[in-house]
């Protein structure tokens, strides 16, 4: 009985590991297909590439991919314009209001192709997969619903966790000083 339980627990643990899975190298055809975003004519919304759901939307749900995105956020100077989500030269990302669409393919297109009013294009600086990682992470900055994988707005210089990590519906007041 104990043995069976152990095996069951082991299987369950393995199943839970999908969010921790590290896909370090994608099949080249899958990688190519990841670039095929079908946006609406205004450059917003539309459909993500078919391969994304087929892969299980790893860039929005997988801890490894999200944390890679978080590292890229710092390395590619996103912080310089969007701060740690609160905005500066660029708009805030954490308020959950997206000028160019909240879905991950819109965010992907914003990073890849840039947007008017100053958002530069990163298509020559990042690989397609890196842009997806970054887009997945950027979406979590403005997400107020819980995610199974943690990375979200950077807690840099804060004395409290970011809003999306608090209990659901908790209204966290701004710091007093």
């Amino acid at each position: 009985m104990t043995r069976r339980l152990l095996i069951l627990a082991g299987l369950l643990a393995l199943a839970a590991c999908k969010r921790e899975q590290r896909e370090v190298r994608l099949d080249p055809p899958a990688l190519d297909a990841l670039d095929q975003v079908a946006l609406m004519p205004n450059g917003i919304g539309g459909a993500p590439p078919d391969v994304l759901p087929a892969l299980g939307r790893p860039y929005e749900t997988n801890a490894y991919q999200l944390s890679q995105g978080k590292r890229l956020y710092g390395w590619f100077n996103c912080t310089g314009c969007h701060a740690n989500g609160g905005g500066n030269v660029g708009p805030a990302l954490m308020e959950g209001w997206w000028r160019y669409g909240p879905d991950v393919q819109s965010i992907f297109a914003s990073i890849r192709d840039g947007r008017p009013h100053g958002m530069p294009a990163f298509k020559d600086k990042l690989t397609t997969e890196q842009i997806w990682q970054l887009a997945g992470y950027v979406q979590t900055i403005g997400t107020y619903a819980a995610k199974t994988a943690a990375p979200t707005r950077n807690d840099e210089m804060q004395s409290r966790p970011s809003e999306s990590r608090g209990p659901a519906g908790a209204d966290i007041a701004p710091p007093s000083r």
Binding site: T79, A83, G85, G86, G87, A92, M94, E95, P175
Partner: peptide, 14 residues
């Protein structure tokens, strides 16, 4: 376009 809950927003002036 600035969210003041991030202490580092607007170069920390937020």
């Amino acid at each position: 376009s600035i969210d003041k809950r991030d202490a580092t927003a607007a170069n920390g002036l937020a």
